[in-house]
Design a binder for these strands. Structure first.
Length: 748
DNA sequence: AAGCTAATGAGGGCAA
């Protein structure tokens, strides 16, 4: 927690400070704080009232967690001991729990309140202590709370009977996800088990739509949630967008050595090496493979210059030991370290403050960019953000999607929205059937059996799965019966079936999201990390991993272990994944930038040139008037809409027997001429909009979530339609496309 | 024209 450099308001005259318990006040004095921060000042009263839900929205490092804990601890200071857990803190990360634990432990010592941790790495003995003497604060993951419901079902009322507060950290990371649906279900079930409503205090730095976040936090009563929007004066931001031009992809592909690094990567590495060496920085990429590529290149630059390496990788497939080593080095002040990383270093793990943040490639989203930026610029220092964007060299064969320099424009649009404090809105339409299936099994485990009506009431009608109506819930129970996940006892009570028993009794049950099977990578007995099993490796293959080069010594298929020895060559593995969904607002903002002549002041020379090229292409292709472009035998559509609408358009066109490729800003309709497509679009635009379910029926692969494999086609259709289709949005795009002038038909 | 695509989490019983 940082002390403000200057504070005209002292703690002694603060109204919030006066309300705190004397021992909390003493703790604040002992920290040497001159004043409370804005979020802390404003959150105290509504939290201490103890009867309402509160969202604390404040920037990273603005004392957000203290804004929740100081008033909560003040209230709990006078509560009778050992009446059960009094405050529950839910975190998306184990590392965050460990951080919070060490910070809270000290404050709570003043109050003689125990602070307990509970997650997968915590010793069983500590967990037993909580079960024996439940009291104080409990810091836990959603998965571990799930395990408590499954394994300690009958004790939940006693464990949490005295619960006064629930704190949810990094709320944005849950919204719209399977994990979020699980979390909301667990919170609701907690209130049912303890027979009283518990105030929910949510923390986040990147909420765009407060009303939606409030409704997410308290389904059905979002308007009663108190929102503390403590946007403090924006700290200075130093921003640069650097453009790079990559080698012609055809020439690069034809390179026989395979060693050729494209020009852009080499130039980016040169700049990173020259700029970041000697300081602590975070370089974010959008892919784990790219982390490996850049770390390897930077480490070689260090070796070539006879300098110790300061560039280290950090991503989700590296072992905990490898990652913790990097985190330690970032924290230590005497070892300059730059971590090349993915989202793993996005959230509030305490690594001190970075001197600067770099982002390679267009950001995955505006809120992702905000999170990443938040890792630099603490302690009154300006935040420094460098964005590196490379585009392919232009020639007459460059397709429209590349010619418009979409990646550069997306970056500019996202910076724009970031400065306006716009963030991706939550998607509250999803059905989350996969997670509902999990929760049905969990409720049965918790209660030793449950009847359908009470489960529908608890989970759907009054619970968080409100988008699921009774017929759909009945259909879900029916497929669960057919798959022997549940079975009905004579008295109508639902119990686990054989398959359900197996599922619930394995620890993989507790997560709501899917995970791939992986090999463990080992060198001389040390675990380096893991690789997805479907990535091809054989004895002798060369690999770049953990920023170093390896040869595969052995592959043990049974134990899923790959043994490695150091080598000289190699290439990074590819990791499977899905691209992030680009929001509608981002694409609309991109279009505004194409149609403007403004040049953002933070572009370097090459970025300016790329901007010019993008705008020239936009004009040359007449995209302002005619977003239907003839491209060889294909036709390209560029309606500047978000990915959900782009997907819906693709589904609609495929329904008319067209082959459609989805490629970011463009839909490529193969072997179709522009005139014919324009006619079809004009017909579609005046047609009645199809029902989403009818449209979803035509989609081939609809399963994507953990338990989707159990669902019937009918349930999959409903789930897909809610998740991936925006029919009104698609029809508004069609209407706009239909106003385009008649394209010239191709000469036969 | 082709390649590229994040992260998160996880128990209990048993034997020594």
């Amino acid at each position: 927690m940082d002390s403000p450099a200057s504070g005209s308001e002292t703690a002694a005259v603060s109204s919030a400070f006066d309300r705190f318990d004397p021992r909390v006040q003493k703790w604040i004095w002992d920290q040497g704080w001159q004043s409370l921060r804005s979020a802390q000042e404003h959150a105290a009263e509504p939290i201490m009232a103890g009867d309402r839900d509160v969202i604390v929205a404040a920037a990273t490092a603005s004392g957000k967690t203290e804004a929740a804990w100081l008033p909560i601890c003040s209230v709990l200071a006078t509560a009778p001991p050992e009446t059960g857990v009094k405050a529950l803190y839910l975190s998306p990360l184990k590392a965050l729990i460990n951080d919070q634990h060490s910070r809270l432990d000290q404050l709570c010592e003043y109050l003689e309140l125990p602070v307990h941790r509970w997650h997968g790495d915590v010793a069983g003995s500590q967990k037993k202590l909580v079960l024996r003497k439940p009291d104080g604060l409990l810091l836990i993951t959603p998965e571990s709370l799930e395990s408590l419901f499954v394994n300690q079902g009958e004790k939940m009322g006693k464990l949490f009977g005295g619960l006064r507060y629930v704190v949810i950290d990094e709320l944005h990371s849950f919204i719209g996800t399977e994990r979020g649906a699980q979390l909301r279900s667990l919170l609701h079930r907690l209130e049912l088990a303890t027979r009283h409503q518990v105030p929910r205090i949510a923390l986040s730095a990147t909420l765009g739509d407060f009303a939606a976040a409030a409704e997410y936090l308290r389904p059905g009563a979002g308007e009663d949630v108190v929102v503390i929007d403590a946007a403090e004066e924006r700290a200075e931001l130093r921003l640069q967008l650097r453009g790079y031009i990559a080698a012609d992809p055809i020439k690069a592909a034809a390179d026989p050595t395979g060693e050729l690094v494209d020009w852009a990567k080499g130039a980016i590495v040169d700049h990173l090496f020259a700029t970041l060496r000697g300081t602590d920085n975070l370089v974010f990429t959008n892919a784990r493979g790219l982390v490996e590529t850049y770390t390897d290149l930077l480490a070689r630059r260090c070796a070539d210059a006879n300098l110790p390496n300061e560039f280290l990788p950090h991503h989700g497939n590296l072992s905990k030991e490898v990652r913790e080593h990097v985190e330690e080095r970032l924290k230590a002040s005497d070892t300059p370290t730059t971590a090349i990383c993915t989202s793993t270093l996005e959230m509030g793990i305490d690594i001190g403050s970075a001197d600067s943040v770099a982002q390679i490639g267009a950001p995955l989203g505006v809120s992702v960019l905000r999170q990443r930026l938040g890792r630099s610029g603490r302690r009154g220092q300006p935040a420094v953000l460098r964005l590196y964007v490379s585009e392919n060299q232009l020639d007459e064969r460059t397709p429209p999607a590349d010619a418009v320099r979409a990646e550069l424009m997306q970056t500019i649009a996202m910076v724009d929205l970031l400065l306006e404090r716009w963030y991706e809105p939550p998607d509250l339409k999803k059905l989350q059937l996969s997670t509902l299936l999990q929760q049905v099994l969990s409720v049965i485990a918790q209660r030793g059996g449950a009847d359908a009506a009470s489960m529908f009431d608890a989970l759907c009608a009054r619970g968080p799965f409100r988008n699921v109506d009774q017929p759909m819930f009945v259909a879900l129970l029916r497929v669960m019966g057919q798959a022997e996940l549940v079975a009905q006892a004579g008295d109508g009570l639902l119990l686990h079936g054989q398959a359900g028993e197996r599922l619930v009794n394995h620890y993989s049950f507790y997560t709501a999201f899917t995970t791939d099977e992986e090999y463990r990578l080992v060198s001389r007995g040390r675990t380096l990390g893991s690789l997805p099993v479907d990535y091809p490796v054989s004895v002798g293959s060369l690999l770049i991993f953990s920023g170093r080069r390896w040869r595969v010594l052995s592959v043990e298929t049974e134990q899923k272990i790959i043994d490695l020895e150091p080598a000289r060559g190699g290439k990074p593995p590819s990791f499977p994944g899905v691209g992030a969904e680009v929001a509608d607002e981002v694409r609309r903002r991109m279009r505004q930038w194409y149609e403007s002549d403004d040049v953002p002041p933070y572009l370097d020379k090459i970025a300016q040139r790329l901007l010019d090229e993008g705008r020239s292409s936009y004009k040359r292709l007449l995209l302002a008037q005619q977003p239907i472009v003839s491209w060889g035998r294909d036709t390209v559509l560029m309606p500047w809409r978000g990915d959900k609408i782009m997907n819906t358009l693709a589904v609609v066109l495929r329904q008319h027997h067209l082959e459609v490729g989805q490629d970011g800003v463009a839909l490529t309709v193969r072997r179709t001429n522009a005139f014919g497509l324009w006619e079809l679009i004009r017909d579609l635009a005046v047609d009645r909009q199809p029902a989403p379910l009818v449209l979803a029926e035509t989609v081939a692969n609809k399963a994507s979530e953990k338990h989707d494999r159990f669902l019937t086609e009918e349930l999959l259709i409903a789930s897909y339609a809610a998740r991936s289709l925006d029919v009104p949005g698609a029809w508004s795009a069609l209407a706009e496309l239909a106003t385009a002038p008649r394209p010239e038909s191709e000469a036969e």
